[in-house]
């Protein structure tokens, strides 16, 4: 665990809220329910990751059919422009705290479709903020689990009560592709606020 440097640091660490925060993060880390959602061949690998050989249930991950109960969205597969706004809506329907793993080349950057396709979105990070990029076409379940472990590192540092800092995006063992960053959704894109009151 990396510690922040600065005045008041020693005092800050002894505040009880920090310990509670650590406990809350522990709970979130071990209970990442993911959204049942796949758009292409990465989905097959995602299913395989839930199967007997790889079994992400070991990490406390179970699939949920409704975004309200999911903590983690694994964007598995090619996202077209038409689908992207739906993905955005699903992401908005998830309750905070929520995380996004971009699985496979298509979701990372458009993959094999990035050059000659008029319809494929070049990376889902243009619509939703991505926490972890998992490279591969499609990534094997091991790669996905590696990405989930990277995400768990991130979740461990998540502070519910304390101060939150923005963190760089994670690619397991790589630099962020093409200067990955989240762009806010276009103002006229068909996306709401997830139907919250």
């Amino acid at each position: 665990m990396t510690r922040r440097e600065g005045p008041g640091d020693a005092f800050d660490d002894r505040i009880h809220l920090t310990a509670v925060d650590e406990f809350l993060a522990w709970g979130k880390e071990h209970s990442l329910f993911y959204l049942l959602f796949a758009t292409a061949c990465c989905g097959i690998e995602l299913m395989q990751a839930g199967g007997p050989r790889y079994d992400v249930d070991r990490l406390g991950m179970i699939p949920r059919a409704t975004p309200r109960q999911a903590d983690l969205m694994i964007v598995a597969g090619t996202i077209t422009h038409k689908m992207a706004s739906r993905v955005r809506t699903l992401w908005e329907q998830m309750g905070e705290p929520r995380w996004v793993v971009s699985m496979g080349s298509c979701a990372n950057s458009g993959g094999p479709f990035s050059k000659w396709s008029y319809s494929v979105l070049n990376g889902i990070d243009k619509y939703v903020p991505v926490d972890v990029y998992v490279p591969g076409c499609p990534p094997r379940p091991e790669a996905l689990i590696d990405g989930v472990m990277a995400l768990r590192e991130r979740v461990r540092r998540y502070r519910t009560l304390g101060e939150r800092s923005t963190e760089p995006h994670v690619v397991a063992g790589h630099e962020a592709p093409f200067g990955a960053r989240c762009q806010l959704p276009p103002p006229d894109a068909p996306a709401g606020d997830g139907g919250r009151a």
Partner: peptide, 14 residues
């Protein structure tokens, strides 16, 4: 862990 997670989850009323 599940209980803690749910405790910290946003309570959404559509």
């Amino acid at each position: 862990a599940d209980g803690i997670k749910m405790l910290g989850k946003e309570d959404i009323v559509p």
